[in-house]
């Protein structure tokens, strides 16, 4: 399955990655090779095999519903690029 430059544009926009014009063809080529590998996997007959959602054959442990985290706002905000009145400040985003 080949992927074209148009799709690379769309994916990089969704992932907030900037892929330059000259890299675009190379990236498309490499992703196509990954998808070829997926095609190969998908050719295997998996009739009767339950889908695997996680490579570890284990079950998730759950924790009791207890508040265990203390307020560390000061420490976190000391390493944040910008904070004011307890809020993290970010470039304005309005839909």
């Amino acid at each position: 399955m080949a992927i074209d430059k148009h799709e690379i544009d769309k994916l990089s926009r969704l992932a907030r990655l900037s892929v330059s014009e000259e890299d675009s063809a190379d990236v498309a080529d490499r992703i196509t090779r990954i998808l070829d590998l997926v095609d190969q996997l998908q050719a295997v007959d998996t009739t009767g095999v339950a889908p695997m959602s996680h490579p570890l054959d284990a079950v998730q442990r759950l924790r009791a519903d207890e508040v265990t985290e203390l307020n560390q706002r000061e420490a976190f905000q000391a390493v944040a690029p910008n904070a004011e009145q307890g809020l993290y400040l970010v470039p304005k985003v309005i839909e």
Binding site: R63, D65, E66, V67, T68, E69, N71, Q72, R73, F76, Q77, Q85, G86, L87, Y88
Partner: peptide
């Protein structure tokens, strides 16, 4: 619930901003 779905931070309403946001909630 008392605590969040994936961390032990409190879910109480109306707290001072970011006082109930742990490293997990901040995605550190």
């Amino acid at each position: 619930t008392q605590s969040k779905i994936f961390s032990g931070s409190s879910t109480a309403f109306g707290a001072e901003p970011n006082t109930q946001a742990s490293a997990v909630d901040l995605a550190l």
